[in-house]
């Protein structure tokens, strides 16, 4: 089973990396970009566990290890075999 966890800075936290990327896009002429936040992607290949266990364990490790809740937030999703988001 494949899981994707997305970690990004909370809205309230300044994201200097994201701002720098946005500024360079602006100077390249892509002026339509209003805002850009940079984050991290974690792709986990895990044992096939019951859904409720996954629902409990993934937020647990995301909140405890992958993200620092003081500055970061996370989202997660289950991917299908092709690596695409499962509906």
């Amino acid at each position: 089973m494949k899981i994707r966890v997305l970690v990004s800075y909370k809205e309230s936290v300044l994201d200097p990396q994201g701002q720098t990327v946005r500024n360079s896009l602006l100077t390249l002429g892509y002026e339509f970009i209003r805002n850009l936040r940079q984050g991290k992607v974690f792709e986990l290949d895990i044992d096939d566990l019951p859904r409720e266990q996954v629902n409990r364990l993934i937020p647990e490790i995301a909140g405890k290890v992958l993200a620092n809740p003081i500055i970061e937030q996370f989202e997660w999703e289950i991917l299908d075999e092709k690596g695409e988001t499962r509906p």
């Binding site: 936290v13 300044l14 200097p16 990396q17 720098t20 620092n68 003081i70 500055i71």
Partner: peptide
């Protein structure tokens, strides 16, 4: 110490990256 929670807060990248 910050990650451990013995002190409050967190560190971001330096402002000049």
């Amino acid at each position: 110490l910050l990650e451990l929670g013995l002190l409050p807060g967190a560190m971001l990248r330096n402002k000049n990256l």
